[in-house]
């Protein structure tokens, strides 16, 4: 099957679960900005975990040249087939030539379009993820996002699989009124308790300076008593505090090493929620112990298993 890109929105990228075990060479983790939505998209389209899919910002449109089964997920996703509204978070059976359009109500949120089958795309260093900055991944392994007129080859099985749906009450929660969990760590000892207190008591606004590398926030500045440090590895969700005191939360395409002090890490689950926030929205933080954060992570995983009957 050929899937043609009719509209590519602001940014449409082929991504999968990420590039693992290459960070020591400087290749970033990559992977879906919202891992929960990505995981559900593949499940609902009948795919194996880790199958590539398209991460979309803005309004994108695709046409398959044979019948296909697809699924769209994300925050407030608007999904149309031939201009007729269809529900996200469930299998959509489309006919050859149908126009599948994906958009988000919140300008800048990420939608995920999974398409059933075996994707025939390059997998440099073990992943199909497109990283613009590294010039790696994508249809031609040059790090290019999807463009209008591109076609993706997907090998589709002859037998259709069953319809799958996720009830709305189980959709990922994108409500930002609940604080994001921050696990203190890294250089936290170099921040006084009043600086930490200020972070947990203040509201931070998501700036326009957000991308797959990191999300810059603006609000009460936080300062450490460090003047210099040696560069070290940065894991996902790390909250960097540059000298201007405005936090930067490091995301999927973050650099592997960096030298700004870090106060801690936004929990994996809440990285997904932050990834779906758009400029102008506000977030708050609460402190969470790493054991509690892991328990919440495992509960979410068990929920997936329970809901998918595994």
């Amino acid at each position: 099957m050929k899937v043609s890109v009719e509209k590519n929105g602001l940014l449409s990228l082929i991504i999968d679960s990420g590039r693992q075990g290459k960070q020591h060479q400087g290749f970033c983790q990559s992977g879906p900005m919202d891992e929960d939505a990505y995981w559900w998209a593949n499940y609902l389209a009948g795919n194996q975990e880790g199958t590539p899919c398209i991460e979309i910002i803005g309004c994108a449109e695709f046409v398959c040249d044979t019948n296909a089964q697809v699924a769209a997920t994300g925050r407030s996703v608007v999904c149309l087939v031939n201009n007729q509204s269809v529900s996200p978070f469930e299998t959509i059976f489309v006919k050859a030539g149908d126009r599948v359009s994906i958009d988000s109500e919140h300008m800048g949120s990420k939608a995920y379009l999974a398409i059933h089958g075996r994707w025939q795309v390059p997998s440099p260093l073990g992943s199909a993820c497109t990283v613009l900055r590294e010039g790696i991944g994508g249809l031609e392994n040059k790090g290019a996002p999807l463009g209008v007129g591109d076609t993706i080859n997907i090998e589709t099985p002859t037998i259709q699989s069953a319809h799958r749906a996720l009830a709305p009450k189980h959709w990922p929660r994108y409500d930002l009124s609940q604080p994001l969990a921050l696990i203190l760590g890294y250089q936290e000892e170099k921040f006084s308790s009043s600086e930490k207190g200020r972070l947990f008591l203040s509201e931070y606004t998501v700036t326009t300076n957000i991308n797959r590398m990191g999300y810059r926030l603006s609000g009460s500045p936080i300062h450490s008593n460090m003047t210099k440090m040696r560069s070290e590895a940065i894991h996902i969700g790390a909250m960097q505090i540059p000298p201007d005191g405005q936090p930067i939360v490091m995301m999927r395409d973050r650099q592997t090493l960096g030298g700004y002090p870090k106060l801690g890490s936004v929990s994996l689950l809440d990285v997904n929620r932050l990834a779906q926030a758009v400029p102008g929205e506000t977030v708050t933080f609460m402190s969470q112990h790493y054991d509690d954060a892991r328990a919440a992570f495992l509960l979410n995983w068990q929920k997936r298993l329970r809901l998918t009957g595994e």
């Binding site: 696990i183 203190l184 760590g185 890294y186 936290e188 070290e232 590895a233 894991h235 996902i236 969700g237 790390a238 801690g264 890490s265 929990s267 994996l268 790493y290 954060a293 892991r294 992570f297």
Partner: peptide, 10 residues
Amino acid sequence: IVPAGLDAIL
């Protein structure tokens, strides 16, 4: 040894 999130140590 410091925590680096729920799934990493530094």
